[in-house]
Design a protein around this nucleic acid. Structure first.
Length: 280
DNA sequence: ACGGATTCCTGATGGC
DNA sequence: TGCCATCAGGAATCCG
C-alpha cells in the first residue's frame, strides 16, 4: 500500500514525465473517485501547466499554474500509469480499474501522453482546487510534521504527548505524517520498541532511536522505489523494498535479532507483527 | 479525548 | 474443482 516511500517515488516519477507540460483534457469514468466538486473538477485543471509534483505525507500534490492544485490520496491501491492513447468516453473501453484520465500535452517534439489514475479498490480520492483552496483544506486535515523530516525531539514531544499504543499513535497522521502499516512495523522492530506499549512512556533516548531507524528505513525504501505489495507499482515499475521487510508479512519467521518466531496481533485494528522478546 | 466498530471496495485466500 | 465466507487495509465517521 502506498505510504511515504511509495508516494515519494510516485511524485518523483510523475514530475519527470509531467513537469512543464500542460493538462490538456480531463476525463472521469468513476465519479466517486473525485472528492471535490465534480462539476468543476475538469475546468480547474484543464489548460494548466504542471509547475511541481510533490509528496505531502502519503498524498501527492500537483502544483499547477495560476495557483491551482490537484491533490491525491492513494489509500490502498491507487497508482498512476502512462499510456500513449486517449480513452473513449465509454468506461468499458478503458484499461482495467482506471477511473480518471489526464491528457498531458507535451512540449514539441515530444508525443502527448495520457496519465491514468488506476485504483482497484477505489478507496483513493482526487481533489481539484482553485487558488488558496487547497491550503484551507489541508489546514483542516491537521497533518503532523513529515515523518522523514521531523527530528528526534519532534518524535519525542509528539509521540509522548499522545495516549494510546505506540503503533496506533505512529499511524495517526495528525501526529506524524507518512507512516502506514508496513513502515510502522518495520521501524518499531528495528528500534526494538513494542507496538503495544503506551506512547506516553517513550523516553527521549528511545525516541532518538525510533527517529534514527525511521530515517534509515524510509530513506532506504525510497532508494528501492518503495515496497511492492498488493500490486503497488510506480510509473516506472515495481519497487523492491519488500525484499528487505523484516516484520511486515513475516509472522512466524525468525526475529532478525534473537531468532524467536515473530508474532502477529492487532493494534488499533491493524495487523501487527513484532518480536515479544526484543521489542520493549 | 479516547477506543472500537463501521464504511468504502475488490481480489486473494481458506475451508469444506 | 467449485463455491462461499473471510480478510486486507487508510481514514472518515459515528458511537459509547
Amino acid at each position: 500500500m502506498p505510504e511515504l516511500p511509495e508516494a515519494e517515488t510516485m511524485a518523483r516519477e510523475l514530475a519527470q514525465k509531467t513537469l512543464g507540460h500542460k493538462i490538456a483534457e480531463v476525463q472521469v469514468s468513476y465519479p466517486a473517485i473525485v472528492a471535490s466538486d465534480l462539476s468543476s473538477f475538469s475546468s480547474l485543471l484543464t489548460g494548466r501547466k504542471v509547475l511541481q509534483v510533490r509528496r505531502l505525507g502519503k498524498r501527492i500534490v500537483f502544483d499547477l499554474a495560476g495557483g491551482h492544485n490537484l491533490l491525491i490520496h492513494l489509500k490502498m491501491t491507487g497508482q498512476f500509469k502512462f499510456c500513449d492513447f486517449w480513452p473513449g468516453s465509454n468506461p468499458e473501453s478503458w484499461p482495467p480499474h482506471c477511473h480518471a484520465a489526464f491528457k498531458i500535452k507535451k512540449n514539441s517534439p515530444q508525443k502527448d501522453e495520457t496519465l491514468f489514475y488506476q485504483d482497484t479498490r477505489k478507496f483513493g480520492r482526487l481533489r481539484a482546487f482553485g487558488p488558496g483552496e487547497m491550503d484551507e483544506f489541508l489546514a483542516g486535515l491537521n497533518l503532523g510534521p513529515d515523518a522523514l523530516s521531523a527530528g528526534p525531539e519532534d518524535y519525542h514531544r509528539l509521540l509522548s504527548a499522545s495516549r494510546g499504543q505506540l503503533k496506533a499513535v505512529l499511524l495517526n497522521q495528525s501526529v506524524l505524517a507518512g507512516f502506514g502499516n508496513i513502515y510502522a512495523d518495520e521501524t518499531l522492530l528495528a528500534a526494538k520498541l513494542s507496538p503495544l506499549r503506551p506512547a506516553m512512556s517513550l523516553t527521549l533516548n528511545e525516541a532518538r532511536t525510533l527517529q534514527a531507524e525511521a530515517q534509515r528505513i524510509l530513506t532506504q525504501a525510497i532508494e528501492c522505489r518503495g515496497s511492492t505489495v498488493s500490486s503497488y507499482t510506480a510509473p516506472q515499475g515495481a519497487g523492491s523494498f519488500q525484499n528487505h521487510h523484516k516484520a511486515y508479512g513475516q509472522a512466524g519467521q525468525p526475529c532478525p535479532f534473537c531468532g524467536e518466531k515473530l508474532l502477529k496481533t492487532r493494534v488499533g485494528g491493524r495487523t501487527t507483527v513484532y518480536c515479544p522478546f526484543c521489542q520493549k
